[in-house]
């Protein structure tokens, strides 16, 4: 079976906006989840668990490695590459 194509940055951004309950227009690559987007603990955990549910690794490993939108997307692509046979 053909593996699904990875999410484009635009699609990933839309997913994050949904998980973080933030206006998609504010989800720029350099936006910091806490200092720019004002994400609190509850929404940040929601978002990290959302990414975990996409099989992107453990939220505890991701927590402070992925502080910006760009880092989250890079982390996603790296994990996807690691998972490919």
């Amino acid at each position: 079976m053909k593996q699904a194509d990875p999410f484009s940055f635009e699609a990933f951004r839309a997913l994050l906006a949904d998980a973080l309950e933030v206006d998609p227009a504010r989800i720029t690559p350099e936006a910091h989840f806490i200092t720019d987007l004002g994400v609190d603990s509850l929404r940040l955990v929601q978002a990290l668990l959302y990414l975990e549910a996409m099989d992107l690794g453990s939220w505890t490993d991701m927590a402070w490695q992925v502080q910006t939108v760009e880092e989250a997307y890079r982390y996603y692509l790296e994990h996807l590459a690691e998972r490919k046979p």
């Binding site: 806490i34 994400v39 929404r43 940040l44 927590a63 402070w64």
Partner: peptide, 19 residues
């Protein structure tokens, strides 16, 4: 405890404490 507007940073601390 977290400074106002930095509540998300507690998630980093919880993750690190688990590690």
């Amino acid at each position: 405890i977290a400074r106002p507007s930095y509540g998300g940073a507690t998630v980093y601390l919880i993750a690190e404490s688990l590690r």
